[in-house]
Design a protein around this nucleic acid. Structure first.
Lengths: 263, 263
DNA sequence: CGCAAGCTTGATCGCGCTCAATTAGGGTGG
DNA sequence: CCACCCTAATTGAGCGCGATCAAGCTTGCG
């Protein structure tokens, strides 16, 4: 996939139109969702939309789909038809390197969208794997853009979500380009903490859904270093760690570890 | 800016509408551009559009703007109104760290777009600095989305450009997360080589517009390491280097250095 | 009970960072 | 014109962070 890095960033674009019947052929459970009735509506796609616009979204009747722990929702190279909103559980996004190792590019929790990287050329650029039993809404991208054509607000929302993804990756690049192991892990934990808080969970105590190896891949370090850094934070009195259970004891201290280099 | 990393990735969105008179107030030179007459039209924004759609783009009459070497086109935090297409010259995008150091997040050549990260929240998330004397088209984003509302193809083009940016950054994350110094510099040079070729220049011999420090910042290594790696490639018979002038002697060898780890 | 997977911890090594000296090129002013 | 300064780049020496290799522990599952 890193071939994208040595491709010219802009080449001839061919507009693929997805047939309107595509939804019927997809492996989506019969259950359908209305955004207006969803408990995640303030976090997820419809966030910021007016009542009228949300009703239009409702008309799309997104199909739900369950993905068991360890299963993939889509793989890199798969034809791009849907973007997915996480309803429950946690996913990782990853790319596969030539030698078979994986590079984790993100973690996704309830209310977050996945798959926007597929818009670029009609195929998913990464794989999405469930880290626990999960449920998603499958949003047919072609229908979404149809709808967006008649609602500039919805169009803005989709654009902003994509732009936000760009900004998020900027931040991660900065992390990978200029931070040491402690700063990286502190940034990761603080980010997780905020996202837990936004979802109504404790911001100071939570269960990690991902392995040390997955954290390490995401942060650009080896699993042993992740483990050692957890231990170091414990010895500094910042954390209590038991396997995947984490309690943040001194959040200001953790922020200091993070801000030691980056604002 | 890395605060984005510890922000919940989705929060309440407010739709800002840009007044239609905004263009008149902007610091754009009176010269106006029509995409259909531009020599870059196959690389740039209108790439893939039909004649009719290109005429609609023409109606926006993008203003041109010259930016002298070392000057910024926009800075992080600036109000987002325009995206910019490079007409000539080279830019770097960068973020500023708390300690004043900069982190380069990209280089942009003729035909490439800049500023899409500003869509996320109405402010530019990065700064754009000219590495030589340059000229850009200033594309009023609000007008572009207006136009896109009536042309699904144009909407797709804009979405794809944003998605492509996401994919590009995925690749860079992979580079920063899992490659060593030689692999990073090889990837960088091969990418540059392809982009030069796409613009009709020699793919094997070109002038670097950026300093060793800027390359290093972009690739997550120190300028001394960049310099040493250039020397190493020279000793391996892959390159001839004289300051910023580079000639690729053995492109297959360079690809091997790149593919040693990543496909 | 045995086996495998995930995590921790220790010991050692090496890549890339840091500090430092040198050279070359460009701009400026006397 | 040269003296001077400033910046960019190269190269060397030494060190430290994080990778690598390895051992041991816990937990879960057949």
């Amino acid at each position: 996939m890193t071939t994208a890095l040595i491709d010219a960033p802009q080449r001839t674009i061919r507009i693929a139109s997805v047939p309107a019947t595509v939804r019927a052929a997809s492996p989506v459970a019969p259950l359908r969702t209305q955004c207006s009735a969803c408990h995640l509506k303030d976090l997820c796609l419809p966030c910021g939309l007016s009542g009228e616009e949300m009703q239009r979204l409702d008309s799309l009747m997104f199909g739900r789909r369950k993905v068991a722990a360890g299963q993939t929702l889509y793989r890199e190279g798969d034809r791009f038809q849907f973007i997915y909103a996480v309803r429950s559980g946690t996913f990782k996004s990853s790319l596969t390197l030539a030698d078979g190792r994986e590079q984790v590019s993100g973690f996704h929790m309830a209310g977050e969208l996945m798959g926007l990287d597929g818009v670029a050329n009609g195929h998913h650029a990464s794989s999405a794997t469930a880290l626990e039993d999960t449920e998603v809404c499958a949003i047919p991208y072609a229908h979404l853009t149809e709808l967006a054509a008649s609602s500039s607000n919805l169009q803005h929302v989709v654009s902003r979500l994509m732009s936000r993804e760009i900004v998020r990756e900027h931040s991660l690049m900065m992390l990978l380009g200029s931070m040491n192991a402690e700063e990286r892990l502190a940034a990761f934990l603080l980010n997780l903490s905020q996202r837990m808080k936004a979802r109504g969970y404790s911001s100071s105590e939570f269960h990690l859904r991902m392995s040390r190896a997955e954290i390490g891949s995401y942060l650009g370090m080896k699993l042993e270093t992740v483990s050692r850094t957890f231990s170091a934070f414990h010895q500094q009195g910042l954390l209590e760690v038991d396997k995947r259970h984490v309690r943040i004891v001194d959040i200001e201290g953790l922020q200091r570890a993070f801000e030691s280099r980056v604002h």
